[in-house]
């Protein structure tokens, strides 16, 4: 199976308090932020790797995983990490962050799918910076492909994927015919979440995203990394999503410590007015 996995780098959520908004609120100042791969995209890559191998012999690839990202040259760090983890090749679509919105990315991905003809696109359900949760759905629409969102499990069948989605009160199982698009949720990296046709059903993965092995890190710099121009992929590069203003959440007042339960009750009643 050939799988395309889009990856996005996001500002490290653990350092989100470092985000600065210059006066006027027209933009976000990203200088000094630390970047990390979007966690859901890392889960998507793990799922794609599991689908293209026999879990018992992961060094032998049984398919191809292509990772693609949009952004400036520095984003290649994210791609190299993915190549070190096991992806077979990478594509960077050169673009500045402020030239991109969900609509443009979905259209550009469509053009890449047309070129690469993967059997499936496996992607994170959302990026943890904007939390938009829309590119997967838009891309499936553009492609006219079946989609299964928020996947918690994926099993490969002949010409289809069996996808489990956790919903309130149970699991919905969808069978999507290939080619198909799947967006993944965090449970997808549990030990028994993903099975390729080659992987025995009693095989258990380690929980979580696999470790990049050191020789693979060294070898990653020799794996192919192609660069494409955004304008080669989409004709209409006008932004559909326009941000009018950014505002930091109001800073929280410092908490207080109460002496005893009696004081807590009094304050809840008189100050917080919740009881």
């Amino acid at each position: 199976m050939k799988i395309l996995v889009p990856l996005k780098r996001v500002a490290d959520p653990d350092n989100a308090n470092k985000i600065k908004i210059p006066a006027g609120g027209a933009t976000i100042d990203t200088t000094g932020l630390e970047w990390k791969p979007n966690p859901f995209d890392e889960y998507a890559l793990e799922a794609a790797l599991r689908l293209t191998e026999n879990g018992a012999t992961p060094k032998t690839r049984g398919g191809e995983v292509i990772v693609v990202t949009f952004g400036p040259k520095e984003c290649e760090t994210t791609l190299r990490a993915a190549l070190a983890t096991g992806a077979d090749r990478a594509i960077r679509v050169d673009a500045k962050d402020d030239e991109l919105d969900g609509s443009i990315v979905a259209k550009a991905l469509r053009a890449i799918v047309d070129k690469e003809k993967p059997d499936a696109v496996v992607m994170g359900k959302q990026a943890v910076d904007g939390d938009s949760n829309q590119i997967g759905q838009m891309l499936a629409q553009h492609l006219g492909w079946p989609q299964a969102t928020f996947a918690a499990t994926i099993e490969e069948e002949d010409g289809a994927l069996l996808v489990g989605r956790e919903v309130d009160g149970g699991v919905i199982t969808l069978r999507v015919k290939l080619p198909a698009l799947v967006t993944v949720d965090l449970r997808i990296v549990a030990p028994t979440s993903v099975y390729s046709k080659q992987t025995k059903r009693d095989f258990k993965y380690n929980d979580g995203v696999r470790f990049a092995a050191l020789p693979a890190i060294m070898a990653a710099k020799k794996k192919p990394l192609a660069e494409l121009k955004l304008a080669e992929l989409v004709s209409d590069t006008a932004l559909k999503v326009q941000y009018s203003r950014f505002e930091a959440p109001p800073s929280r007042k410092a908490g207080i410590k109460v002496k005893d339960v009696a004081e807590l009750v009094t304050r809840l009643k008189n100050e917080a007015k919740v009881i």
Partner: peptide
């Protein structure tokens, strides 16, 4: 370098997890 950082992070994750 990117590569050195990847090595550091891979071993760090292994040790901590």
């Amino acid at each position: 370098s990117d590569e050195e950082r990847l090595v550091q992070h891979a071993v760090r994750r292994f040790v901590r997890e």
